[in-house]
Design a protein around this nucleic acid. Sequence first.
DNA 1: ATATGTGAAAGCGTTCACAGCA
DNA 2: TGCTGTGAACGCTTTCACATAT
Lengths: 251, 251
Amino acid sequence: MAAQRGEGDGVVTSPEAPADVRERARAIPEAAVARLAVYLRVLSGMVEQGVTTISSEELAGAAGVNSAKLRKDLSYIGSYGTRGVGYDVEVLVSHIERILGLTRKHSVAVVGIGNLGHALANYGGFPSRGFPVAALFDIDPDLTGVPVGGIPVNHIDDITSVCAEREVSIGVIATPPQAAQAVCDRLVSAGVQCILNFAPVVLQVPDYVEVRKVDLAVEMQILSFHVARRADEAAGDVVNGIGVDGVVIRP
Amino acid sequence: MAAQRGEGDGVVTSPEAPADVRERARAIPEAAVARLAVYLRVLSGMVEQGVTTISSEELAGAAGVNSAKLRKDLSYIGSYGTRGVGYDVEVLVSHIERILGLTRKHSVAVVGIGNLGHALANYGGFPSRGFPVAALFDIDPDLTGVPVGGIPVNHIDDITSVCAEREVSIGVIATPPQAAQAVCDRLVSAGVQCILNFAPVVLQVPDYVEVRKVDLAVEMQILSFHVARRADEAAGDVVNGIGVDGVVIRP
DNA sequence: ATATGTGAAAGCGTTCACAGCA
DNA sequence: TGCTGTGAACGCTTTCACATAT
């Protein structure tokens, strides 16, 4: 069992393999993949505004990164810009969509229909971006059959059959922490290889399963750290003889 | 305006400053901070189970990292273990809490009381971890005064006064994307320096404001990328002359 | 004997700066 | 001239491996 990230997958590739899309996809850094998704969103907005061409500088500004990083990220997926001009927005959109695997539909199952599960089931951002919510599960028998966001809730015991039948490829865990590992195990045995985990638990999964986690408490605590750091810095600068306004108090 | 991360904060510190907590806090890598929050959660569970001592190996396993990384992370906050024995759980908990600034209360304001806002307002994980939800805001006048999760919703126009009065230090944006930047600007002018953004928008903020984002569509697309990569690899291995089971098909 | 704490090495990701092309 | 694409330099993060302490 590997925790949270498959480290080294042992797939054999021939040494003289051409640097084609397959090999290239493998080489894209995880951080760049996350940013490609952001570029794609910004570019989609551009298409709606009727923008046809964009420079790395402009796109980078809109995506909140610097232009060197943007160009490097785009270079991982190929060279689709025109020197001296910029990028064709639609061309870029279609290449990023291809690399991110968005030409294919990814059915989603949400497990745990509490506050968060409700919100996720009703969230319009998923279906509109090629991630239809195909199944909902909860352990509460009273919820079974009740439609949420237009989809009837199934009992958690039916995960295996329902996920197989509806070709679910992404499982979303929105259960209480105590239930998360058991739910995860069921999803994995149902053949789900990608999991988005909202429960504050470190899931143990086989190497071939990809887990991403969204942990609100952790996000809050990182923000808290920065609040504290700032307060300490302000105090520390005075202690070190320099006030926050740069005036030397103790030279 | 800097986007999403203050790069270089220009604070002057004297060169002979002692390597005390203040200086150390500044030196902790961002990645380590996120993991410290995870260690804290695992350790809190240990306390409840009555565990008093734990080794780096055990804690690392429970947190889903390797023990070298765990020890390095803990070394950033000081040396609180006992060689040949391990760490005192309670001692570690209190030191991590101090570093993360959790000895201080951080009031939270949630803006945008839709599906997600409701879920966040009702989410028990915040108050129980020192992040009381102190204010809720929405633009819909019909919602004003309606209590959600025990807190009455205020109108978005009152952000400045209410946030100041209730000493809000963290703002959570759960609005539609179109409204996010305007809400962010209001939070910032209300003195909020930390923002957790659920809206799929790149927020523009001054350097001194810390933004963290949770973007569900991006998470989904990263998972989609891995689905695609796996499919390509499986196909690619055959194309390259080697089947998935290692058998050479085209030597 | 056993497990921490940490320099040093290795690995990744970001930034620089400029060659190359329209 | 202007902007992309990218090798090289840089800095951050992880891993290694062992000195150090109980």
